[in-house]
Every structure is written in C-alpha cells, then in structure tokens.
Design a protein around this nucleic acid. Structure first.
Length: 592
RNA sequence: GGUUCUGUAGCUCAACUGGAUAGAGCAGCGGCCUUCUAAGCCGCAGGUUCCAGGUUCGAGUCCUGGCAGAAUCACCA
C-alpha cells in the first residue's frame, strides 16, 4: 500500500515537473496524530528542482493523487507536508483479509541459506547471571524475529568448557571439595561448581596478599602463586588429555550442564546445535599453525605465536601461549571455521556483549589476514551492559544477580500480586502456577527486551517487577480481556460484509492502521536485529485497544454486523498480540 | 593516554535513520467500576534533547571542539 502510493507520487512528480525522484527524496511517513490524515508525503525535497513554494507543490500532487487513486478519500496540505486520508474501506479490507490468520505478518522461509546465530555461550565455571539473561533473551528473540522475516535461522550455543578458568574451579573442588556433589549438597550443579570457583578466587587473593608481604612485586604475583601454577599445570595436563584431569573435568562439566539445562528450560531457550570449545580449539590451533607456516603469523623467541596487526592500527595479538596452549581467540577462529563448514551460512551472528567489541574486530581481521573469505560473514551483534543501581555486578562483593534467584523472586511477586488482586479465585492450582510463570517471566523478558540492545541498561529490581504501564503483564492482561470478550460473545461465524465503513470510529481506524503495520514492524526489527521494535509495537497496539475497549461496549451494539466487525477486530488484535509476544519469547494467558 | 560507545522530563526508556508542536511508562496530583476483566481508562503537571559552534528549507539525529560517564587496549574469557 505504501509502495503503491510512493510509486504514484514518483510518477506524478515525473509527469508534472519532469523530475526523476530518487529513493531518498521520496518520503512517505505516518501522519502525526495532531494532523488529519493517515500518510504524509514530504514535498520539501522537490522544492528546489521545481522552483515553486512547497505548499503549491503539495497541492498540485495532492489533487492529482486523489483523482488517480481510489483508495484516497481526501488530502490536506500543511507547509511542505501533504497529508493523505485513505478511505475506511482500505482499513476494512486489511481486517477482512487477515483477521482470522494467526500467522499474519510472519513469512515462510524465503532464503534457504541459513543465518547462524550464536548466543548464550556460557562458561562452565559458574551459574548464569543477569548479564547472561540479557544475552539469552536477545539471542532467542532475534532468532525468532529473523525467522518471522523469512530467514532460515540456526541457533547455536558455544559452551566455554575449557581454559584456565575452568581449571580453577576444578582445582578448588579437588583440594577442598571433599567429594561434594549436587546430590550430596542439594545444590544445582552449576551453583555447586560456581561455589568452588569463588573459593579459588578467595584463596588466591589470600595467597597473593601473603606473597606481597614477602616482597613479591605486583607483576610477579600471578607467576609466583602456587595456586596459579597448579591451575596452569592442570590446563597443560588437560591439553595433553591426562586421564585423571579429564575425568574430573567431565564430571564437573556434567553437573554444570544439568544446572544450565534447567535454567534454559525455564527461560524458554533452546538451540539447534551446541558447540564445545573443547572440540573446536584444536581446529583453531591448526589454523594458527598453518598460517604460521605460510608466514602470515609470527613466532617469538619464547615460542608464542602472534598476529601482527599494527598496520591496522592495532597492537599484536597472541594466538598461542609459549607453552603451546590456546587462548580465547584461538578457539574462536576454530569455531568460526567449523560453523562455516557445518552450515554454509549467509551470515554468522554473534550475540556478545559490547565489552568484546575489540575481540570481534580482531577476530575478523585475523581471519581476513589468514585468507578466509567467509570472514566477512561474521557480524557481532553487540549489546550493552546491564547495570545495577549500586554499580557493577561483582562476584566478590556479592552483587551478582543470579538468574535462578531472579526468576524465583519474580515468580513470588507475581503470585503475591495476583492474590492481592483476587484474580485466581476461579483458577485451578496448576492453572494458577502457569499464570504466575507467564506473568513473572513475561515481565522480566519484556523489561529487558524493550530496551534497544546496543544501549547499556539499568536494571532496577522494583521496576522490573512492576506489572503496570509499559510491561508484559499489561499486554498479557489485554490479551486475556480480548479472550474473555470472545468467549462471552460465543462467536462462530463473523459476518460483517455489509457493515457501513462510514460508521467506523477513530479509535477503530487507529487500531486497524496499527495492525496493518505489523509486517513492517517485523521487518524493521529484523533489519535492526532489535526486539525493542516489537516491544514498542505491541505496547502501542495494546494501548489503542484498551482505549477502544474502555469506551465502546462491543456487545451492547444493536447492529449485528457492527458487533461482528468489532469482534473480528478484537480477534485480530488478539492474534497479533500473541504473535508479537511470541517473537519476544513471551507467552500470553487466556485468563488473568 | 589511544580507540569505541553513550548523554533526551525527578527515574526508566521512545522518537520510523535529517522532517511538522520531542513522546510513553513509573513516581506525583485529580477524576472514572449498577454496563464485555479497574493488572484498565481519562485529565493535570513535568524539557535550553550535556555545552559551544557549524552544515540547510529543516538538527535530539550529520560535522568540529569541549564536558561527563561506560567499555576496551591481557600469555582472562
């Protein structure tokens, strides 16, 4: 429809002024609420070439548009803005064509070549926290949005299951764990392992303090520390596949996976393929050694291997330590290679925090230097940090917001709130549980996803738990209202063919206009890779519907066709609300 | 110090990528349940878009220079 109008404007500009209007000059936008009209053509861009005042041009184009397009009811010109009002029949047509289509706005797969999106990518040395929550929610939602926009999306997770940090928790458990297990302690596996990681850190700190007193310099502390030496030795043994170390490693990792699985399940996160760094780092090592052979990389006297990036205005970057073990970058090279082979993708997205902007920049440059043309497929979907009112999350200061705890708290609040409002009197207990889950998780997800991914966000616990205003519970509530209305109406067969479009009210037209925009909201969200676009859209739609609901008693209307028209519109809104919430990974209840 | 990002109402966030009078929510104040769910609706109040220049018909958005904050510049990941 928008394209139709734009094409016509383009044609008219050509006929009237003999000017070829290019893409950017042709601007069609939604008319602002204070003005009359649905769409607005901005005519300023033509004024110079035409040599007439803007309002005259607007008038000239407007009159011709109205003559030649039967969807246009009227027009008005304010300064350089040509406002067009479409006939009610147009909006009614949108309703007729789509109101019963649950998949309205969603595309089937257009392009078979997959888009691979990596997210979550946890370390197996500690449980998931608030930062991971943003990552997981973004990844899952962006994947759903891209799919809705017609991409063949593959979700992958890269488990960071090896490295010096993993050895730290292993070592601590070996030293001080006394055989403790999830079963014996009653702790979730990831929580248990996390406990030992923290323990290592504390003991290391003590040891370093002692060393410092003995006069060891700041720089030497890591080298001199016995604990660190032991951890490094363990990593070396691990890379040599030492039997005992491997056994400990796989035992503790399995505990962690059990815990992660529970948390993912609860959050509604899933993957098509899981990579383990322990499988991919070797590939990376191989690539590095190959490149070294070809003279692309340099080896220093101590045996360590580096990429020289000084011609890119960056420093040197280590790729293999002097003891031959690999670093983060090394395994990421390998993972990228494997992923490219596995999927032959058109795009490889990495949902990773903006603290790693530098890392991904370097990753791409190194791959490019090594001669891999697919380096260009890598896109870092960088998102901002989650900040807390009292500052950064620091495990040592106990200010880390644990993902499981957070969901528990949200659940309890949802429960208390629901009881206080007296909403569950007619719900079965499992229904009620379901509702608490939906509402609490919805609130959390929406609170995080409504913010533009690339911006840092402030996480205020009291506000995330708020259920009024621009929140998921508000949107869920509207869905429940619609469902309730439809139940009451008991509608099977909606007949509104003969409804008179001229009786359509402003609030109804606004809703239909909004519904017509759902497909473009999806494509914008996919383009920007930003769930926040969908969140705003849903909120605006639901606000419009609530206004309508408040002052138009649907079932009190005399005219049957008008009732059916309104029911069809409500049904349509309900579908789009559910659909858009699904894109955010949020479920909506039929009653609440 | 270098690089990158951010700065919008008391607070948390929008603003269709350069378009009209910068919008929501929360918090505050005032109204609306005999009528389809009040987790709702309506109204009031709240702004030098960090500052100073520049670009043009037009700037929160673009360019330059400041100021403030964050991230990063690891043989951590």
């Amino acid at each position: 429809m928008e394209k139709q109008i734009l094409d016509k404007v383009k044609q008219l500009v050509r006929e009237l002024y003999d000017i070829e209007a290019a893409g950017k000059q042709l601007l069609l936008q939604k008319t602002l609420p204070d003005f009359e009209g649905d769409y607005t053509v901005v005519v300023f861009p033509f004024t110079k070439a035409v040599g007439k005042p803007p309002h005259v041009i607007g008038e000239e184009i407007g009159i011709r548009l109205k003559e030649s397009m039967d969807i246009i009811a009227s027009y008005n010109v304010v300064k350089g803005f040509l406002n067009l009002s479409l006939k009610n029949e147009v909006w009614l047509g949108v309703l007729k064509r789509n109101y019963d289509n649950k998949d309205y706005g969603l595309h089937d797969i257009i392009d078979e070549q997959p888009v691979v999106i990596e997210f979550s990518s946890p370390n197996t040395n500690k449980p998931l926290h608030l930062g991971h929550v943003r990552n997981n929610l973004l990844g899952e939602s962006v994947a759903r949005i891209l799919k809705a926009a017609g991409k063949n999306v593959k979700k992958v997770n890269l488990i960071n299951d090896r490295g010096i940090h993993i050895c730290k928790s292993m070592l601590a458990w070996q030293k001080w764990g006394k055989g403790e297990s999830p079963e014996s302690s009653g702790l979730k596996g990831d929580q248990l392992v996390g406990k030992y990681y923290v323990m290592f850190d504390q003991e290391l700190k003590k040891e370093k303090e002692k060393l410092a007193k003995q006069g060891v310099s700041e720089d030497e502390l890591d080298n001199e520390s016995i604990l660190m030496q032991e951890a490094r030795e363990m990593l070396r043994l691990w890379e040599k596949r030492d039997k005992e170390v491997m056994q400990l490693w796989s035992k503790m990792n399995n505990w962690v996976y059990g815990g992660f699985h529970e948390t993912y399940d609860r959050m509604g996160i899933s993957f098509d393929k899981i990579y383990y760094e322990s499988d991919t780092y070797l590939e990376g090592k191989k690539m590095v050694l190959d490149a070294l052979d070809k003279g692309i990389l340099i080896q220093k006297d101590d045996g360590s291997v580096w990429a020289d990036l000084r011609k890119h205005n960056l420093d040197e970057k280590i790729l293999l330590r002097k003891d031959g073990t690999s670093v983060y970058m090394t395994q990421d090279l390998g993972t990228a290679q494997l992923r490219f082979r596995d999927f032959d993708p058109s795009e490889m997205l990495y949902v990773v925090g903006n603290e790693q902007d530098y890392h991904f920049n370097v990753l791409q440059i190194v791959l490019r230097e090594m001669g891999y043309s697919w380096a260009e497929l890598i896109k870092h979907l960088s998102y901002g940090m989650v900040e807390l009112p009292h500052g950064k999350m620091k495990s040592r200061e106990g200010t880390v917001v644990d993902a499981d705890d957070l969901m528990d708290e949200m659940y309890d609040t949802a429960k208390a709130m629901t009881k206080e409002l007296g909403k569950i009197d007619d719900l079965q207990s499992n229904e009620a549980k379901n509702l608490f889950n939906m509402v609490s998780l919805g609130a959390l997800k929406y609170f995080i996803l409504k913010v533009d991914p690339k911006k840092n966000m402030m996480f205020k616990p009291e506000e995330s738990i708020n259920f009024n205003g621009n929140t998921a519970p508000f949107i869920q509530y509207t869905h429940a209202r619609i469902k309730s209305l439809l139940r009451k109406a008991n509608c099977t067969n909606l007949e509104f063919e003969d409804v008179d479009p001229s009786f359509m009210m402003d609030s109804e037209r606004e809703i239909l206009k909004k519904l017509a925009l759902y497909p473009s909201a999806i494509s914008e969200a996919a383009e920007e890779k930003s769930p926040s676009v969908i969140a705003s859209y849903s909120f605006e739609l639901v606000k419009l519907y609530n206004q309508f609901y408040q002052d138009v008693p649907v079932l009190k209307e005399k005219e049957r066709s008008v009732i059916d028209f309104r029911l069809a519109m409500s049904l349509f809104v309900g579908h789009v609300v559910r659909s858009s919430m699904t894109l955010l990974g949020i479920d909506v209840p039929d009653k609440m």
